[in-house]
């Protein structure tokens, strides 16, 4: 009996100490690298210019309607004025770009600089190194996005002369959170490729290819696949609806779709559904009235958790691969 408990104890404490020893040292070092690096500075300039351009255009447009719309500050994010698209449209592809730029050489870069074996010879586990790098990426992303969020809110107040309401702030903060995790997915994808491929350039290309696939081709592919999976044989309305549902489900496998739906529901309070709506389901609804924040969040709760879950899943996959990787070059 005593022997047995010894064994189980040994199994439970297979490794000494916490796997997170040294985690914050890694986070601090990686964040310092990100924030002082040239790569990050270029992206920051790009995103700030975009924010200034689109928000300026939006304020010009919105000036006329100040006072009529209770959510005028949220419109700053979504209002487009030819030829510029809305700021959220830019975010949809700028955020993946930043995330990929932050992580595509995070692991293989340590190998090619020959620092990996030296760092892992310090009293830390691999867990701390990988999670530290990921957290540093997320924090950097959050820092950049929060800065832009503040800039836009500030510019909006000055440009439109309206203070933000509590609900506007809350909605845009939820939106900020969703944007960070949308970036988190691409961060995890780029990190995964940086573990799989030994060449940083290959990892960068693979990440960009994955992003292009989901941004451009997945929507087209879903349109092709849906009729195959759910053919309309007799032309019944049920069949047509089923096909449309299948197509929608397929497109939701793309993080871009999830993010777009979250964005629409959070920034446009009048939106009551992000899926298919039949006229019968709208019976009794007062169209054009905004939903309370809790209902909007509830509407896209699956999408929001989907974004977070995908981030965690991709990170876990990279984690397993990294643990099994040989340190030898």
């Amino acid at each position: 009996m005593a022997l047995r408990s010894d064994q189980s104890q040994e199994r439970m404490h297979g490794r000494e100490g916490s796997p997170w020893t040294g985690l914050w040292a890694v986070v601090a070092k990686e964040m310092a690298d990100h924030l002082t690096g040239m790569r990050m500075r270029i992206l920051e300039i790009l995103i700030v210019l975009t924010a200034i351009g689109t928000v300026y255009a939006a304020t010009q447009n919105l000036r006329e309607t100040v006072g009529q719309d209770p959510f005028i500050l949220l419109r700053l994010f979504t209002t487009a004025r030819e030829p510029l698209p809305a700021f959220v449209g830019f975010l949809g592809f700028l955020v993946p770009l930043i995330a990929i730029a932050l992580a595509f050489d995070s692991v293989n870069g340590e190998f090619s600089r020959r620092t990996m074996s030296r760092v892992l010879a310090q009293p830390i586990y691999r867990d701390a190194l990988l999670l530290g790098k990921f957290l540093a990426g997320i924090f950097t992303l959050a820092l950049v996005l929060a800065t832009i969020w503040l800039l836009i809110m500030g510019a909006g107040m000055i440009g439109l002369g309206v203070p933000p309401s509590g609900e506007e702030v809350a909605r845009s903060l939820w939106f900020l959170l969703a944007t960070i995790f949308y970036g988190g997915i691409w961060l995890a994808v780029a990190m995964l490729f940086s573990i799989i491929f030994r060449q940083p350039a290959t990892a960068a290309l693979a990440s960009i290819a994955a992003w292009l696939f989901f941004t451009v081709f997945w929507g087209i592919l879903a349109g092709v696949l849906a009729p195959i999976l759910q053919p309309v044989r007799y032309g019944f309305p049920e069949e047509i609806i089923a096909q449309a549902q299948t197509e929608l489900t397929l497109t939701r496998l793309s993080p871009n779709t999830l993010y777009t739906e979250v964005m629409i529901a959070l920034l446009q309070p009048t939106v009551r559904s992000v899926g298919l709506v039949l006229p019968i389901q709208l019976h009794g609804a007062v169209l054009g009235t905004p939903l309370p924040l809790s209902q909007s969040v509830l509407l896209v709760w699956p999408q929001l958790t989907g974004l977070i879950a995908a981030t965690i899943l991709l990170f876990a996959l990279g984690y397993v691969l990294f643990q099994r990787q040989e340190i030898r070059a």
Binding site: G14, R15, E16, G17, P123
Partner: peptide
């Protein structure tokens, strides 16, 4: 089993 102590 005790990599941290060894590596320290």
């Amino acid at each position: 089993r005790q990599p941290l102590s060894v590596k320290a």
